[in-house]
Design a protein around this nucleic acid. Structure first.
Length: 579
DNA sequence: GCCGTTTTCGGCCCGACTGTTTTCAGTCG
């Protein structure tokens, strides 16, 4: 099996870090890390890009890295990395995970004290041996021990479904303070990444000390990690870290822009600023004369750089700055434009609410079209429906439709199993009775690439199918995506006019942002659904819209954002095509 | 190692915070 993009990226990260430990040029080191970051954001498999001879078109990939990628794809190994591992103990990389330990210190611990791994460092810190080194004192030893304890209890990146509500609660409390003029989520939260490392907040206030005191008095704050005049970093109960920047209101624009990131986006912007004779920091744009230009709003920052404002979800340095310069930023989908949810469950299978309760909730959320799509017969654990029960369910849907009137259109659909052998779980004549057919795989997701790809591609070719549900099958964080040739699936879906789902549940977010972007690039339509099993879960579509925005999607590319008549016409056209 | 309407060679973002220090290096984002 060929290494996937993330595995290749990890090799380059390791290589960069090993070189860094040896004092290699920071620019060379950074080149490896930047390339790794770019590879993680690609929506296409590297093997596919390499086969097309297009590796060099990836930003940050030049002659040397392209050759190394070819080597990895061919052999599964990176000889340059193996060579560095002979010079430096690979376990030394673990030291870099400790807060406060970077490449310089790790290298000195190794060279001066012979420390090669975490247990060795812990012992040395406890025995007071680190303070024998120049520039190190008891404070460093204490910081390292506390950093190791934090590492042990640290939760990994948390799903946005947990981070977002927590952040909103913290923001609400911040905004209650009279000292706070404005407070916003920043960082990866504001960019709507699928998982969040630290919670970042930006506050506008002329009294930073008071704001920080107020924030640390929040019962959810367990420990203050660092505190300066403009910035405070804390650990919350549960191990999640949060940091707050406090800036005066007249500097809020530059500060929010800075705190939102991403780092790569910001670096790129600062390079553009320099070319215009300006230096950009979180405080201001500064002319070479030293005169500051203050920006209270983010729009002003971008405007001074000759750019239109760029939506936070795009700020990954994945081409958005070039698009902004060319006036080609996408007209991004917005939550308020969502009109339909085509993937929901009721008590007829494994849902927790009746069809009527679900329909009333959907209507209350402003949706115009709801498809009830319970599981098909073979998914026994979810009480999948037989054709007979499907007929009974249709009568119930008609009753609810009559009771609720015209404000919301209720469609009968099904989430039909793509069985392990590739068969679709209902006969064609049963599918033909349904308004919406989702084809999804829930079982045998660990099949070899050829087999599971063939299952999904087969479903995309099936004339009775409207779209493929949560295509990769991943669950964040516990289950990796199935090993699917997405490029093949996208090509087939585009050819047959089958849509692909963005499942909004925070544990799925499937397709991912990168894959959704790629799918749209090759001409696929997308459907953003909640997969709701209860009325509250309709609100989850906010997360699906976040993915769509990160995928550069416009309303025209998302069938669930289409006007009701157009969506119904599209559903019926596919239905006619199969009969 | 990458990259180019200032360059195919010579650049490559910016500042906060900490711990150790009398001016700074290292780390972090």
């Amino acid at each position: 099996m060929k290494p996937d993009n993330r595995a290749v990226a990890q090799l380059f990260d390791d290589l960069g870090s090993l070189l860094e430990l040896q004092g290699e040029s920071a620019f060379r080191v950074n080149a490896y890390h930047r390339a790794a970051e770019t590879l993680r954001g690609l929506g296409r498999d590297l093997s596919e890009i390499a086969a097309a001879g297009e590796l060099r078109t990836i930003p940050g990939v030049g002659e040397a890295i392209a050759a190394k990628i070819e080597e990895i794809l061919a052999t599964g190994q990176l000889p340059a990395l193996e060579r560095e591992k002979e010079k430096v103990p690979a376990t030394l990389l673990d030291l870099l995970k400790i807060g406060g330990v970077g490449p310089k210190r790790a290298a000195r611990f190794w060279k001066e004290l012979g420390i090669t791994d975490l247990p060795g460092l812990e012992a040395a810190a406890k025995e007071g041996r680190l303070r024998t080194m120049k520039g190190m004192g008891p404070g460093v030893e204490a910081a390292i021990l506390s950093g190791m304890a934090a590492l042990a209890r640290r939760t990994d990146r948390i799903p946005i479904g947990q981070a977002w509500p927590l952040a909103q609660a913290l923001l609400t409390r911040l905004r209650e303070s009279k000292k706070v003029r404005a407070a916003e989520a920043a960082g990866s939260l504001r960019r709507r990444k699928e998982t969040i490392g630290d919670l970042d907040f930006l506050v506008a206030s002329s009294d930073p000390e008071a704001v920080m005191d107020y924030f640390t008095a929040d019962p959810r704050v367990a420990e203050v990690i660092a505190r300066g005049p403009t910035k405070i970093s804390v650990e919350l109960a549960g191990g999640v870290r949060a940091q707050i920047w406090v800036h005066p209101p007249e500097r809020f624009g530059t500060a929010l822009q800075y705190a939102t990131g991403s780092k790569d986006h910001n670096v790129h912007l600062r390079e553009i600023a320099l070319k215009r004779g300006l230096s950009l920091s979180e405080h201001a744009l500064t002319r070479t004369s030293g005169k500051e230009i203050l920006c209270a709003r983010e729009e002003e920052v971008y405007d001074r750089l000759g750019l239109p404002w760029i939506a936070p979800e795009l700020r990954e340095d994945h081409g958005e700055i070039e698009a902004a310069q060319a006036g080609r930023l996408p007209d991004l989908l917005e939550l308020r434009q969502m009109r339909a949810d085509l993937h929901t469950h009721s008590t007829w299978s494994d849902g927790h609410a009746s069809i009527r309760e679900m329909a009333e909730a959907a209507r209350a959320q402003g949706l115009k079209v709801l498809a009830v799509t319970d599981h098909s017969q073979s998914l026994g654990v979810a009480r999948g429906l037989t054709p007979q029960r499907l007929r009974e369910q249709r009568k119930e849907i008609q009753r609810v439709q009559r009771a609720l009137g015209d404000a919301i259109l209720i469609l009968q659909g099904a989430e039909v199993e793509i069985r392990a052998d590739g068969q679709i779980d209902y006969e064609d004549e049963v599918l033909a009775q349904l308004d919406v057919v989702i084809a999804s795989a829930h079982t045998s997701l660990r099949q070899p690439r050829e087999k599971i790809t063939a299952r999904l591609v087969g479903a995309a070719r099936h004339p009775g199918v409207h779209f493929i549900g949560h295509p990769s099958g991943r669950l964040i964080p516990e289950r990796e995506p199935a090993d699917i040739d997405m490029e093949a699936l996208f090509a087939e879906a585009a050819r047959h006019g089958v849509a692909l789902e963005i499942d909004s549940h925070p544990s799925r977010l499937d397709l991912s942002d990168a894959h959704a972007r790629r799918a749209a690039e090759v001409g696929c339509l997308l459907a953003i659904n909640t997969d709701a099993h209860s009325p509250e879960e309709f609100a989850l579509r906010e997360y699906g819209v976040g993915v769509a925005r990160r995928a550069w999607l416009t309303p025209a590319q998302v069938i669930t954002a289409w006007p009701r008549a157009r969506l119904v016409a599209w559903l019926q056209k596919r239905k006619k095509a199969r009969t």
